[in-house]
Amino acid sequence: MSSKLKGAKAGYVLALFTLSLAAVLVVTACGASNRNQGGQANLSGSIEIDGSSTVYPITEAVAEEFMNTYPDVNITVGVSGTGGGFKRFTAGETDISNASRPISDEEAAKAKESGVEYIELPVAYDGITVVVNKENDWVDHLTVEELKKIWSPGSKVTKWSDIRPGWPDEKINLYGPGTDSGTFEYFTEAVNGEAKKSRSDYTASEDDNVLVQGVSGDRYALGYFGFAYYLENSDKVKAVPIDGGSGPVEPTAESIKNGTYKPLARPIFIYVNKKSLERPEVKEFVKFYMENAAELVEEVGFVPMPESEYQENLNKIE
């Protein structure tokens, strides 16, 4: 692993512990060893990014590496959730929006009203991971129908025994993303058949670390969040194989990439304001993102897109 990638990973791990303390983090350069790389160190300016907490680790890692090369560029990365990020992006407040789902028709209409034109760039694959406590020794897998039984609006499931006879007659404590989260929207559409339709009596947070802490501290808990956060915390929580109709499948890089982890595998994106691309620092950052994404995406626990996808993204930028 290169020293640059180690630096990116270190920055990512540090950020995970500080996300709950600040809604917006300013990524700072961690060294000047590469400041004169390519003779471009005089590039300056600022870039405003907000949105998905799922996509955040990738963008944070890229931003850190970029600022090692261009220390006079200041990049601010927010974590207000996909929906929250799109609210700012479609109003023209940010240059780039991290998104764990595609932009909605309503959001696209708001962007048009504001005169915001944008480019959609897929950056990685993710798999929404259903997790339970490490001490949970009764759940071997869950079907999509069982997930729907648990999470649908008006669900009558209050105990584990309500899901399957023989499971503990203990209250099931649920943890999941907040309603501004793209993960919430994708999960509810994939499982319940309609985005944002979900029971509301669960512990919700835009900060996935809060969800990890909740499930890891409660034997009878169940939650869901992005695959990278599961990998980062696989010593604290246990992933549940999901049966989407062809038998139980564990979330792995391979099952996410080949689509067998269904219906919870998905692409994740960044959206770039076309007007912002006219600024040299933004265009150079987005190009740098696509040129280094495959390596950095894997480094922070996601599944890279095929190289042809990143090349296509570069073509869109140009």
Rank of each mutant, 00 (worst) to 15 (best):
S3L: 12
K6F: 04
A8D: 05
G11E: 10
L21W: 06
A23H: 08
A23R: 11
L25Q: 15
C30I: 11
G31H: 07
A32G: 11
N34A: 15
N36R: 13
L43D: 02
L43W: 05
S44I: 06
D50T: 13
D50W: 08
G51R: 09
I58L: 15
T59Y: 05
E60W: 01
A61M: 09
A61C: 12
A61H: 10
A63N: 07
E64S: 15
M67P: 04
P71G: 07
D72G: 12
T76N: 08
V79S: 14
V79M: 15
G81Q: 04
T82S: 09
G83A: 08
G85R: 12
R88C: 09
D95F: 01
I96F: 05
A99R: 06
I103V: 15
E106G: 06
S114G: 09
S114I: 09
G115H: 07
E117C: 04
I119P: 01
P122W: 01
V123S: 00
Y125E: 11
I128W: 05
T129E: 00
V131I: 14
K134R: 13
D140A: 14
L142P: 01
T143W: 06
T143I: 10
L147R: 04
P153M: 02
S161M: 06
I163K: 13
P168H: 08
K171L: 12
L174K: 12
G176Y: 06
S181R: 05
S181E: 01
G182I: 07
T183C: 05
Y186G: 02
K196H: 00
A204Q: 09
A204V: 00
S205C: 11
D207R: 02
D207N: 11
V210W: 03
V212R: 07
G214W: 03
V215E: 01
V215R: 03
S216G: 13
R219M: 09
Y220M: 14
F225Y: 14
F227T: 02
L231A: 03
E232R: 09
N233G: 01
K236A: 08
K236Q: 14
G244Y: 09
P248G: 08
V249T: 12
E250Y: 10
E250T: 10
T252F: 07
E254H: 11
E254D: 14
I256L: 07
G259H: 12
Y261W: 03
K262C: 04
K262V: 01
A265R: 07
R266E: 10
P267I: 10
I268M: 08
V272M: 04
K275S: 10
L277G: 06
R279Y: 04
E284W: 05
F285M: 03
F285L: 04
V286E: 02
K287I: 13
Y289R: 09
M290V: 00
V297W: 00
V297S: 04
P304Q: 02
M305F: 03
P306A: 02
P306S: 02
E309P: 07
E309Q: 15
Y310A: 10
L314H: 06
N315E: 13
I317S: 00
